[in-house]
Nucleic acid binder design. Structure first.
Lengths: 353, 353
DNA sequence: TATTAGCACTCGTATTGCGAGAGTGCCAAA
DNA sequence: TTTGGCACTCTCGCAATACGAGTGCTAATA
């Protein structure tokens, strides 16, 4: 009942490692042979009974071996697991997979792909949350008589484009003028700032809308409003299909929930959001995350930084029974590489050596 | 052996309809009761034997009923099926789901979502191929000392952004000048044109690169080159998870191939490309499409038009045993609605009434 | 000649029973 | 505290069986 003896710990470790390898309940005989300890199966059985009392392992049925519980994995990951960081050559090899070519979005996709290929699980990458990103430039382009394309560019290279439908008709000249004014007035300030300024402007006086610059204000207000609800694409998921061949997830119903979560993205985003606050690698095991759809899964996450600032997290989703020992360093390194690529510097290898 | 008698046709139709409903082999007794014809099971059996000889149906084993073959479905879809177009109210109801708000990309996603929700299958929407789209504007923005963000805007409202790494360093002023020159020189011409012009320019004389405008040329050349290999995002797939609960696709291996096809997108794009040439609705049944991964599936496609010009196709992917009668009109209408939304006109309802 | 009833036959599915194997828990001995 | 021994439990796989659905064929019928 009390704390784990070192011997019990070692056996738990051996059991979980074994179980992770071949996914079958581990019996006392197997364990006694490869635990490294010189113990008879009978002794191992006694210890296993203790571990079961502690809620760390359980038996699927009477005459099967034991399998780890979520709590067991927790202890394993937190205190028993020694992750060996990848060596330099390895990191460099991965580095070339993540070069900044093409659009920023493509880079995120590469990262997600990389995660999924290396771990053979599903990779998830959150789109950078740069609330403090500086506004750089806005462009208005007439698409048709009642639709205007707005292109919003931030300092970090992100480009948002939206179509809005203003009530009034504006001439192209109006729009150019509006853009110029707006770029001059707000260039360099953070998006948050700009939003606040727009809000203040709106509340000041509706008559003010009649002034010369009202076009700019009207357009900008609409453009920023249109951007509010774009959580949709804040997450890049790749390699979902890897999860199909995992025996634990053979239950179609579970798989469906999981895939729905990948499409909806809401739950996963919450989880990543949450793990961003924790600032550091995190492992959510089984139902710990609190999301129904992730019941049978574990999620390993790591935050990534751009120019020293925390901007997002990435990770992988897989079955509870995954090779944490390998997955954790991979997620870790990918986060560093992505941050590095987004920062435009390629110094990561030197930094860590 | 000869052509189908009307009676045989009717029985085939009844059999397939029945099979589509509950997915189980249909026996002679069942069929004799609900074919509408007053025939004894024995007679039905005779006809079924004929149909089997013709390769339209087959029995999974001796003592099961019959199921349609791919060829059977083909005949069914081509000559027996009467699709009832959706009524106006229905169309209008769908119309509001596809309003052009937010980015063009979001509109395509809505369409794909709509398809998948209405059919409970996977929706696929090809990104418009507007080779003849006119070049409108290009912008160069410095991201860091060696990376430049290029934003390319076409007349139809598409915005491409890419990051390139030029060999030389250009000052921001250089880049502004380059963009201005380029916009002036090429604005309004089609992308194809612009590409050709760039190619010609390059081949003319390398010394020309030293002229005043070489910056523009260098940048543009790189930008267009970077855009070459972006097939990746030419397809929007939604609702894949609907396919998980379909019993025919219970085979994990098949599912995996299918989901890989959704991620790779290459095969599906080829198929849609192909169906674009045919100009009209198309149904690919089972292996007809020629792609291994779609072996167990059917694909229903319809082209869509923007301002009268054919620019892409969309459709759904589902099991061979799908409710064609309902799926076909849904795909049809969605294609019209998407085209209409992209064209910026909302006249579709009137047009078809 | 086309249709139908009857019947023997085939084949997949579900059920049952049984034995083998794996693993446990507990007790008594070391 | 550890270990060997032993009875017990439970799953899994296999074979045997019965059942039911559906067919194909033949002969009778309209």
């Amino acid at each position: 009942m009390a704390a784990l003896t070192p011997r019990a710990e070692q056996l738990l470790k051996a059991l979980i490692e074994r179980y992770i390898i071949d996914g079958e309940p581990v019996g006392s005989r197997t364990l006694s042979r490869q635990s490294g300890l010189e113990l008879s199966p009978a002794t191992v059985r006694n210890v296993m009974a203790d571990l079961e009392d502690l809620g760390l392992i359980r038996s699927p049925h009477t005459s099967a071996g034991r399998v780890p519980t979520a709590l067991g994995y927790r202890v394993f990951v937190d205190t028993l697991l020694k992750v060996r960081p990848l060596d330099l050559a390895e990191i460099q090899r991965l580095g070339v997979e993540l070069v900044y070519e093409g659009s920023p979005q493509q880079l995120l996709e590469s990262a997600s792909n990389l995660l999924s290929q290396l771990t053979r699980l599903a990779g998830i990458v959150m789109v950078p949350r740069q609330r403090q990103a500086a506004f750089r430039q806005i462009e208005f382009l007439t698409l048709s008589h009642d639709r205007v394309l707005v292109i919003l560019i931030t300092d970090d290279g992100r480009v948002d484009n939206r179509v809005i439908s203003p009530d009034k008709r504006y001439s192209p000249a109006d729009l150019v003028e509006a853009a110029n004014y707006f770029n001059g007035a707000f260039g360099g300030r953070t998006l948050e700032d700009v939003k606040q300024a727009l809000l203040a402007e709106m509340q000041r006086d509706s008559d003010a809308m009649q002034r010369a610059m009202s076009t700019a204000m009207d357009m900008a207000r609409r453009a920023f409003a249109a951007g509010e609800d774009q959580d949709e694409d804040d997450l890049v998921v790749r390699g979902e299909s890897n999860l199909l061949k995992i025996p634990e997830l053979g239950d179609i119903e579970k798989l469906r929930n999981l895939f729905d979560a990948f499409t909806t993205k809401r739950d996963l985003l919450h989880l990543l959001d949450q793990s961003m606050r924790a600032a550091g690698m995190q492992v959510f095991i089984g139902g710990e995350s609190g999301y129904q759809s992730l019941e049978a899964c574990s999620v390993v996450t790591a935050p990534y930084h751009v120019d020293g600032k925390l901007v997002g997290t990435l990770g992988v989703v897989g079955p509870t029974r995954m090779a944490y020992e390998q997955v954790i360093p991979i997620v870790d390194v990918t986060a560093r590489l992505l941050g590095s690529a987004l920062s435009g510097e390629h110094r990561i290898v030197q930094e860590r050596s």
